[in-house]
Design a protein around this nucleic acid. Structure first.
Length: 416
RNA sequence: CGGGGCGUAGUAUAGUGGUAGUAUACUUGCUUUGGGAGCAUGAGGUCCGAGUUCGAUUCUCGGCGCCCCGACCA
C-alpha cells in the first residue's frame, strides 16, 4: 500500500485524556480513533493488526476442532430470561434497546445463552458430541468505568468458543487442549514470555477457572507468580489452602501487575440445565451436556502487545501481527532514486509481501520518525547513499540494527 | 456505583469580567531535503443551558462529556 493513499496521519502529541501507553501510541500512530469513552474505531492500520490477531486465533481454534460461526448481535430477551441473566439485579451493565413492537432486545453481552439455546436444535445424541463452535464478534457492556485505551471498553471485539461435551472426562480432555492453544496464541502474538496461566475463581462447577495474565505495569489485576513452575495465582483466590492444593511454596511467589488477555472456564451444566441441552447416551438415557467457555478479547490483546512491546519512539510490532511486513521508505528527491523505490515496491508487492510504501513528498526525517512510531518490523530505506550499488539499506525496528542486503536476500527473509 | 480532577482551534497549551495568545497540524508561495526543516501567508477556537452583570470564555447553578483512584469485568 502506498502511504500517500493512507488517509490517517501520525501525531506528535497524544490527546491529553489518554494516559496509557497503548492508547497514546495507537492514537498517535493512526491505528485507532476514539469515538467515546471505551469505544474505538479501528483505522486501516489498526484493522490490519486486528485481522492478523484474528487470523492467528482462528488457526489455533480450528486446530483443536473449533468450528467458526457468527451469533447475532441483537439478543433475544426470552432466551436470557431462561438463564435468569436478563434481570438488571444480576447483570447491571446490559445495553438494552426497545423494539418497535414493544418488546426488548439486548446488545450481545456474552454468548453462553445464545449457544446453549441454539444447540438444543442440533444436539440430541451422543453421536453429536463433542463440538466446539466459536465466533468473533463485538460485545457490548455498559461499563461504569471503561478505561486504559483498548484494555477495557464498552464495546470490544472478542473470540468466544464454547465446548459441548458428553461428560466431565471428555470436557477436561478438551480443556487441557485449549490451554495449549491459548499458550500458542499468546506466544505467537509476541507476549508468550510475559503471559502466565493463572488460577482464578471457578464458580460453582469447578474449583478454578484459568486466566492468561500478561505481566506489565499497565495491568489491572494482581497475580502471584511461581516462576519455576510457570504458573500464577490471581490475588482473588490466593490463600493457604490454594497454595498447598497447587503444591506451591509460598516463598516462591512473586507479586506482579498483569492484564487478563484470555480466560477459560468450566461451566458444567449451569447452562445446559435451564436450556434443556441434553442428549441420549448409548443406552438411550438422557444426559446433560457439559460445557466450557474460552474467551479472548482481541482489542485487549492488541493493547497489551503495545504495552509490552514498545519503546520511547513508538510501537515495535512482532512480525506475526504487524500491519505490514515491510516499510519501504523513499528518502530522496532524486527522480532516479524514486524510480528505484517504485521498482522495489512493485517487486515486493508482486512477490506477495505486504509492504507499506512511504512515497509521500515529505522529508526523510519525518518519514523515519513516522516509521518508528508505526513500528513495522523491517524498514527498507531507498536513498542516495546506496543508489546504484544494487544493495538495499535495511533497518530492524526492534534492534535498530542496519544492514545492506540484495533484493533477493531481503525477499527470502521477508518470505521466511 | 462511591471518591477526586478537568472541559479554550484537529492536537497540545497560555490567559482574561471588556476585540483570546502560542506551538503543532492544515492552505498558498519561495528556499530546503538521511532523523519530526526555515521564512512568508491564509483560514480555524472558549462543551451546552440558565443566572448575576451594561458586558461572561472567566463568577454562580444545572446538565453533558472526559480522565484518574476504588468496586466490578474479556
Amino acid at each position: 500500500m502506498r502511504q500517500s493513499q493512507l488517509f490517517t496521519k501520525t501525531r506528535k502529541d497524544a490527546p491529553k485524556d489518554e494516559v496509557t501507553k497503548n492508547a497514546e501510541l495507537l492514537i498517535r500512530g493512526g491505528f485507532i480513533h476514539k469515538e467515546m469513552a471505551g469505544v474505538y474505531t479501528y483505522l486501516p492500520l489498526g484493522l490490519r493488526v486486528l485481522n492478523k490477531i484474528e487470523g492467528l486465533i482462528r488457526e489455533e481454534m480450528n486446530n483443536i476442532g473449533g468450528v467458526e460461526m457468527r451469533t447475532a448481535v441483537l439478543q433475544n430477551k426470552e432466551i436470557w430470561e431462561k438463564s435468569g441473566r436478563w434481570d438488571d439485579a444480576l447483570v447491571d451493565n446490559w445495553f438494552k434497546t426497545k423494539l418497535k413492537n414493544g418488546g426488548e432486545a439486548g446488545l450481545s453481552f456474552t454468548n453462553e445463552e445464545a449457544y446453549s439455546n441454539l444447540l438444543t436444535q442440533y444436539i440430541s445424541s451422543y453421536k453429536d458430541l463433542p463440538i466446539y463452535p466459536y465466533d468473533f464478534k463485538n460485545i457490548f457492556r455498559n461499563e461504569a468505568r471503561s478505561k486504559s485505551g483498548l484494555l477495557r471498553g464498552r464495546e470490544f471485539y472478542w473470540k468466544a468458543m464454547y465446548s459441548f461435551s458428553k461428560d466431565i472426562a471428555e470436557h477436561e480432555e478438551f480443556y487441557e487442549k485449549s490451554k495449549q492453544a491459548y499458550r500458542n496464541i499468546f506466544s505467537r502474538v509476541g507476549i508468550g514470555e510475559e503471559t502466565y496461566l493463572t488460577f482464578a475463581s471457578g464458580g460453582s462447577f469447578s474449583k478454578f477457572s484459568h486466566e492468561f495474565q500478561t505481566v506489565t505495569p499497565a495491568g489491572e489485576d494482581e497475580i502471584y507468580i511461581d516462576k519455576k513452575k510457570g504458573i500464577a495465582i490471581n490475588k482473588e483466590v490466593l490463600n493457604d489452602e490454594v497454595i498447598s492444593l497447587l503444591g506451591i511454596n509460598k516463598d516462591d511467589l512473586v507479586k506482579e501487575k498483569a492484564i487478563e488477555v484470555g480466560n477459560i472456564f468450566s461451566l458444567g451444566t449451569k447452562f445446559s440445565e435451564p436450556f434443556g441441552l441434553a442428549y441420549k447416551d448409548v443406552k438411550g438415557d438422557k444426559q446433560m451436556v457439559v460445557m466450557g467457555s474460552y474467551g479472548i478479547g482481541l482489542g485487549r490483546v492488541m493493547g497489551t502487545v503495545v504495552e509490552v512491546l514498545s519503546d520511547e519512539k513508538g510501537i515495535i510490532w512482532p512480525r506475526s501481527i504487524a500491519p505490514f511486513k515491510a516499510h519501504l521508505v523513499l528518502a530522496s528527491v532524486d527522480p532516479k532514486v524514486r524510480e528505484l523505490a517504485e521498482d522495489v515496491y512493485k517487486t515486493l508487492s508482486n512477490e506477495g509481501i505486504e509492504v507499506l510504501y512511504d512515497d509521500r513528498d515529505v522529508r526523510a526525517g519525518e518519514k523515519f520518525a513516522d516509521s518508528d512510531l508505526i513500528g513495522i518490523p523491517t524498514r527498507i530505506i531507498i536513498g542516495d547513499k546506496l543508489s546504484g550499488s544494487g544493495m538495499l539499506e535495511v533497518k530492524n525496528r526492534a534492534t535498530g540494527e542496519v544492514s545492506e542486503k540484495t533484493l533477493e536476500h531481503l525477499l527470502r527473509e521477508l518470505k521466511g
